[in-house]
Simulated assay, not measured.
Amino acid sequence: MSLSKILGIKKENEITYKLLNEFISNFNKNNLIHIYGGEESGKTTFALKLTELNPDKVFIYIDTYYSVTNINNENVILLRNNNINVIYDFLNKIDKNMCDCVILDAYSNLLNEEDKWNDKTYITMEDNLKKIYSLCVKKNCTLILLNTLNGKNKPFNKNNYLIANTYAEFLLSEYNHINNSILITPIKAINTKSKRIYF
């Protein structure tokens, strides 16, 4: 065991987020976290609650579906756009270490301006993910990728790059609006048991 673990010293790049700390204690700030679920599974609600519960962190929230009208948290910068060039230019202009976490909501709607749905779309989306994640690593921030399910009830465009670079992966299901709870199943994380989180 390292001396830093014995003394409880965290590495400079280690970070913890409330809501995710049930499954991840500390992870490197440059990690990619993949969170997916079906329609109305609470992905956006979960992500917005994450920003609210972590006022000491700076978030960039990218809303590709233009569904988030406003965010009242002062620690969140909202970008409503699904064009990869606009998103890339925006992220490229921020200073290194300015942002703790980029939340991309959602990967399934990340396209180029000229994109049309065909066989090449999936390759283009993978390339777009590479660009964004590489930039997040360069800027020293976590990327939380929200994703939908495809017709086979699997994460949309779960390609080799996404699989290889994902540090933790979670399935969100059974979102209950009445008691504000979401069932979270860790697919790739330390804790492999499903838990219902209340917020």
Rank of each mutant, 00 (worst) to 15 (best):
A106V: 07
S173N: 09
K43D: 02
E169D: 05
N26I: 10
I9T: 01
G151N: 12
L111S: 05
D63V: 05
N153S: 10
S41A: 15
H177V: 07
N54L: 12
N160K: 13
N176D: 14
D56S: 13
Y88S: 06
I103Y: 12
E126N: 11
I190T: 08
V76F: 15
Y65W: 06
S67W: 11
I94Q: 11
N128D: 06
L20S: 04
T44N: 09
I182S: 08
S181T: 12
I182W: 14
S25I: 07
N147K: 08
N179M: 08
L79A: 04
L146E: 01
N147M: 10
S2C: 02
G151L: 14
V68S: 09
D63F: 15
L48E: 00
N128P: 02
T148G: 02
F46S: 03
N191P: 00
I197H: 10
N140I: 03
I71Y: 15
F170Y: 13
F170V: 00
I197A: 10
N31M: 08
N83P: 01
I77N: 05
L48A: 08
I71P: 03
D63H: 09
L79I: 12
E22R: 09
G151H: 14
L143D: 03
G37S: 10
I84K: 02
K116P: 00
Y161R: 04
F90E: 01
L78V: 05
Y133N: 05
I77G: 00
E169Q: 13
Y198I: 11
D115P: 00
K5S: 10
L146C: 03
F23A: 04
M1Y: 12
K131A: 11
I15M: 08
V86N: 11
E40Y: 15
N54Q: 07
D119R: 10
K130T: 03
L162E: 04
L53C: 03
T64C: 07
I94R: 10
D95V: 03
L91M: 13
I24W: 14
T121D: 00
Y175P: 00
S181H: 09
G42D: 08
K43L: 12
F90S: 06
E39G: 07
N70G: 05
T142P: 01
I187C: 07
N147H: 11
L20I: 04
F156I: 02
S108C: 09
I197P: 00
L135Q: 04
P55S: 13
